[in-house]
Design a protein around this nucleic acid. Structure first.
Lengths: 190, 190
DNA sequence: TGCTAAACGGAGCAATGCTCCGTATATGCG
DNA sequence: CGCATATACGGAGCATTGCTCCGTTTAGCA
């Protein structure tokens, strides 16, 4: 899962696959406990692998962070159909949004990493959206069809409203400030 | 300025005062170039002081970051009366907001530090507000009196709109999600 | 000028990121 | 099953960095 795009059909040796799983699981735990800057040695020790093994699979810390992130996105997105099968549409939606809010809450410090400019994170926003938007759309659609909620809600808007992972470059900020100043002036001439 | 609250009337020796200024100036430069995680050695070297000197004055990195932050807040706030003296009210306001936007832009990565929970940062938000709110209020008032802008703008709202340094605890997030879900349901029964 | 408290500075230790390479083993083949 | 070999493993070791400790220097004062 880490760099599967490089060799799409690569055949990981069995022990290598076990190591990768162990590392991802250990990293998830350690990141949650100590943040994404936790010592690599600690992750390797918890996973029961050597430093070499960890660095071979995830050459940069960002690679590991990104892999763990994808894993948690997958888990959260997968909760949507599960909840939809178990609960009434409105209930399923409410529970999933809480689940999603929990996911966002565990990402403290990660939004900073997202904006670090590391190329390993480049695909994450798209992955995030591609995973969550259909999941939420399904829940919203079901709830709307059941007459429990309105229909005029864009899934992505809702995702953003709960967890704002937005960025803003300098030029954008400048234009926004200009806009606000213009806005201030507008009402003055009455 | 660093820990002046501990000994309000302390008399710093002349060389100590020079060292502190040199460190703050060097830290400002290095932080801007390499972020707030830059090596302490680099700051000490640029300031022309030893490690001991730096650590004696700023025992924790957060102390140094906070001191640099206050210094830059002071500089930005001080620009308000200067601009007000040089330009027409509307111009002064627009220019200061751009200046403020630049200040915010240099704080990349610092918002993460702000939320790190380090007690050295506890007083910074209040300092931020206490410095900028009166400065902006003066500019807004002058521009409004000149008929160049509306009067119904709260200075703090404007500050927040440009640089959102907001935080949100878990309970708050939870209540917000509940509110949004309620909001979704509200329009369904028509 | 001489004394002393204050300040200085950098060697050195511990923690951590990351590499390198000798060792171990999973897998395919005869 | 036994062997050959590519694949994977593991941790010693080096470089960097945070932080401390203490011998040396100096500013302020009489």
């Amino acid at each position: 899962m880490a760099d599967a795009r490089q060799k799409p059909n690569r055949q990981l040796r069995a022990d290598a696959q076990r190591s990768e799983d162990a590392v991802l699981e250990a990293a998830r735990t350690v990141f949650a406990a100590s943040g994404v800057d936790a010592p690599v040695r600690e992750i390797a020790a918890r996973a029961g692998v050597g430093m070499g093994t960890l660095y071979r699979r995830f050459p940069k810390r960002a690679d590991l962070v990104a892999a763990v992130f994808r894993r948690e996105v997958d888990a959260c997105a997968a909760a949507a159909p599960a909840l939809a099968a178990e609960y009434a549409p409105g209930q399923a939606l409410a529970r999933w949004l809480q689940r999603y809010a929990e996911f966002i809450a565990t990402k403290t410090g990660l939004s900073a990493a997202l904006h670090s400019g590391d190329p390993a994170f480049d695909t994450l926003p798209a992955y995030f959206r591609a995973s969550f938007e259909p999941a939420l759309a399904m829940l919203l659609d079901a709830a709307a069809s059941a007459g429990e909620i309105r229909r005029d809600i864009a899934p992505y808007d809702l995702l953003r409203a709960i967890g704002n992972l937005s960025v803003a470059d300098q030029a954008h900020t400048r234009r926004m400030v200009d806009l606000i100043v213009d806005g201030l002036r507008f009402g003055a001439a009455e």
